[in-house]
Amino acid sequence: MTFHQHTADVLAHEHLATNTFLIRLRCPELARAIRPGQFVMLRLGNRSDPLLGRPFALYDTVLDERGKPIGIDVVYLVVGKMTGLLQHVRAGETLSVWGPLGNGFPEPVGSEHVALVAGGIGQTPFLAHIRELLGTRGYAGNAPRRQVQRVSLYYGVRSADLAAGVEDFRNAGATVHLASNDGSLGHHGFVTDLLASHEVPQHLFGCGPEPMLHALAEQAARRGIPCHVSLETPMACGVGICFSCVTPVKTPDGWDYKRVCIDGPVFDAAGLKW
């Protein structure tokens, strides 16, 4: 559970889709320790506005020619003050980064077929997850180990121009099913409706807007599928010390707030008090 703070060189920064970028950071120690579903905090150095770091999912580790992790990729959507400035950071500049943070995805129930369900910018934790599930890359010092035979990614966006990383997911070995709110890409409608029209997977993992995750959790309960969701709540520290990012979680005697940063971000959907 321990994390470390580093100053990371920006190795590359590229535009993937509308308002969506991939930033590559050199941080070998962090890259060796992080696993899918975990996240990092990024902060622009030496300025007090914006003051706080922001949480970003691991997109994937970056390996050197011998396969050793030397950095991480983060894919982000420009949504506010911090990401508005982040998009202008260039290769050679540095960022403050701390991690690995959060619990990461648990091993799936069943070894046949797992479905990952993403909405909006919620696809970002799933590239590394696909590689971990299919055993094509090891994380946090663990050797690659195939956990399932098939991974499907259901990925919904508002419109086609916002879809980012689709080729990465296909190249990693996932079967990709696309949906869009305006019909400009794949299924015209909600990604959860597309999922509902398909075969039952053995385990569901979701990341995206809360209404989507709620719909996913309901569908999982209805179809009797184990389901874990990765939540995003406003965080000040990302490490468990500020108690900002809480979400209500069921307990034996009712419910209690749990910190999304340290008790999550991945939760059993059935345990959340929606």
């Binding site: 914006p50 003051l51 003050k81 000040a236 108690f243 809480v246 209690d256 707030y257």
Partner: peptide, 23 residues
């Protein structure tokens, strides 16, 4: 104490407001 309902913090210019509520 469960603490206050979220959102519990918000960033402001060079600062932040918190209302954790002694969770």
């Amino acid at each position: 104490r469960a603490g206050n309902p979220p959102p519990r913090t918000v960033e402001t210019t060079s600062g932040m407001l918190n209302a954790i509520g002694l969770d």
